[in-house]
Computed example of a mutant assay.
Amino acid sequence: MKRVIRGALAVVLVAPLSVALTFARPGVAHACTCAYNTDGTQAEQQLEDFSSGDNAVFTGTAVAERREGFTVYYDFDVREIFRGDVGAKTTLSTARDSAACRTGFDLKEEYLVFAGTYDTQDAPWSVTMCSATTLSTNELTRAATLKQFGEPRAVTADERAAADYPHGLSIVQWVGIGVAAGLFAAGTVWILRRARH
């Protein structure tokens, strides 16, 4: 009798679960679905989104890439700045996984970059495929960028030189410091010799 009760109980408990699993459908995995359409149809709306807040818009060449954990960092040489506090050199972070809206850059290619300050992972800027970032040769996006932000400011030779040398000093400034130090040393030696005589 106990066997019959156990069997009936098992059927009562297992049958609904079996039916539910038979008709259950696996969930759909959601990946990044906001990728920028480079044909220009989304340009004006996405550029308007970058006209406020702590965002940056610039053209620059990707010169280095490094990966740390789930993040990829790209170093950029900046050529012109439409918006934002961007120097002659800057770094962007992006997710390592394309399902997390990763934006990849080919080194030595120039891009029109739309970067933000959300989840930068200690870089100055972050970028996702949801932004309007594209190759700088994309005329539709560039035209929309000019319409939204006006003419860009070119990075000057002084800004580039300051970015290339430690502490933001150019080579001319370092030579000046060296000459001044040499004159100071020579003057000190001359004064000490005169004081002995």
Rank of each mutant, 00 (worst) to 15 (best):
P26H: 08
V175L: 15
V72Q: 05
G53D: 09
G116D: 15
S136M: 08
E48Y: 09
D97Q: 05
P16W: 14
V4G: 03
R142K: 12
F105W: 03
T94H: 11
T71Q: 13
A162H: 07
V86Y: 06
S93P: 01
A163M: 07
E80D: 15
F50P: 00
A195W: 13
E110M: 11
W190K: 04
A8I: 07
A8C: 13
L135Y: 14
A35G: 08
H167S: 11
A115C: 06
A62G: 01
R3D: 10
L47N: 12
P166I: 00
L9K: 02
L21T: 01
E151R: 05
L112P: 01
G84K: 00
D75A: 12
A24E: 11
T91W: 01
T61C: 12
A181M: 09
Q173V: 01
H197V: 02
A163S: 13
P166V: 00
T117V: 04
K108R: 08
F149V: 04
R67N: 12
L107W: 13
A10E: 07
L9Q: 08
V63Q: 12
G84Q: 05
A144C: 06
P166C: 00
R67L: 11
R79V: 06
R160K: 13
D85Q: 13
Q42K: 06
L21F: 15
A99E: 11
A35Y: 09
V113K: 04
V11M: 12
D164N: 10
P166A: 00
S136R: 02
I5Q: 06
T38C: 08
T59I: 06
S93A: 09
D158C: 01
D54L: 07
I5Y: 12
L140S: 12
K89E: 13
V78K: 00
T128I: 00
V72T: 09
V11P: 01
A8T: 06
E109K: 10
Y74T: 00
A180H: 04
G60A: 04
G87Q: 05
A24G: 05
R6G: 04
A43S: 10
E48F: 10
G7M: 14
D122Q: 10
L192F: 15
K108G: 02
P166W: 00
P166Y: 00
V172G: 09
A123I: 04
F76E: 01
S131G: 12
D85V: 00
A181I: 03
T141C: 02
G168I: 06
L21S: 04
T94A: 14
P166F: 00
G150T: 03
A43Y: 09
A20S: 08
G104L: 07
A162D: 07
K2D: 11
T120F: 08
T103L: 15
A154D: 13
A162V: 01
F23N: 03
I5L: 14
E68S: 14
A64Y: 11
T134M: 10
L135A: 14
A157K: 10
D54N: 13
T141W: 02
L21G: 12
